[in-house]
Design a protein around this nucleic acid. Sequence first.
DNA 1: CGATCCGGTGGACGGTCGTGCACCGGGACC
DNA 2: GGTCCCGGTGCACGACCGTCCACCGGATCG
Lengths: 222, 222
Amino acid sequence: MVQSVSRPAVPVAGVADEGRSESRGERKERTRRHILDAALDLCEDSSLVALSLRQVAKEVGIVPTAFYRHFDSIEDLGLALVEESFVSLREMLKDVRRSDPTYRTIIDSSVRVLGEHTMAQHSHFAFISRERVAGPPAVREAIRHQIDLVERELATDLARLTDPAHWSAEDLRVLSNLIVTLMVGATETIVNARPETRPAILETARTQLRMMLVGALRWSSR
Amino acid sequence: MVQSVSRPAVPVAGVADEGRSESRGERKERTRRHILDAALDLCEDSSLVALSLRQVAKEVGIVPTAFYRHFDSIEDLGLALVEESFVSLREMLKDVRRSDPTYRTIIDSSVRVLGEHTMAQHSHFAFISRERVAGPPAVREAIRHQIDLVERELATDLARLTDPAHWSAEDLRVLSNLIVTLMVGATETIVNARPETRPAILETARTQLRMMLVGALRWSSR
DNA sequence: CGATCCGGTGGACGGTCGTGCACCGGGACC
DNA sequence: GGTCCCGGTGCACGACCGTCCACCGGATCG
């Protein structure tokens, strides 16, 4: 028994106790957070499919069976992490939209925002890019669905920026998919590269978006 | 002892024996092949990092320790699979180059070849796209290195098709990276999609390449 | 022909895994 | 203030894991 009676249920204290005891709901939520953080951290250099419930429990400082009080399985945990990661991603997209509605500087500001967020939310972006192709089936599907939603939203954004005479709905969807694929690729490169190469990667992404923009401006659906 | 003395060392016979016994080298090579195939098959819906040596051995029909006669570890096996998978990929690229040197039809023929090869070598392409981001570090690195080589080769190909006055070496590298990223993305989509959606995915890839080609033709390095 | 090589066997080890179960003790509620 | 709820404990189970070891027997080689 490694936990003394004087520090009863809370597995690992984040801040000093300050005498004020939490409600049961707060406690549960806090443990849940610890589990999510620990899982995100532990699968950083492998994958959810190679993560064991016991590893997570040990990292959090609870007994393995206590895990079930919060999640049915690792896969269930994974779905929660998808949810959480896409909150990060959508905040990024909100920043992109807020930053600049003109397309003189839209590329620069978008790439800048991408760089900032992949740095600040590194674990979330790495998680998505990894589990997107290698996670448990249900997790993969959830991520694909979310990315699909993002693609659709981008397509409607693009519809406002382009000439409807030249751009069919289908082609907008295709362009949107192209841009998202490219950004996912850039994100994957960033999260797997050494930090000091980051500016060069972002510069590459900028140039690529410019090349595509040149194409898009001349495009006309047949 | 489940294997009778009448079927001595060979774990699982591929074709009828035809009375002719193999040399020791041939036997070893054959078992090695079975291991590679079994591993490729077993990690199809998870990842190398979730694959155990014992699963592979059981699938092949050998005792776990016999695995070590062929590979040091699962990671070592993974590197062999990378090697093998890129043989497939390079054969595809050879087909692409052979198919058409003019760029009237270069997009159509390239995408057609991509479709054919991802169908025929489905396991290899799925393996690369999965382990590229989720495999053991050494495997990831090997794949990145190979893709990097492909990118360089594409860049020199593009150098012959473009006007040197408008395209700097750096921009050729960036364009090459753009195309490869896009094709990797298309491949990932294909190997994870239901077979009947394949034509639509390829059509999307065609359109995207056309959009980029429009951009590339107007491009000029600043 | 006899010695050697080597891919295979089979058993055993210590460790980790997911999960079932009974139980505890403090917050929440009537 | 007594009762219930529920997130945590601790233990045990059978399964699977990688790896060590001694050994076998047919192919190979001098």
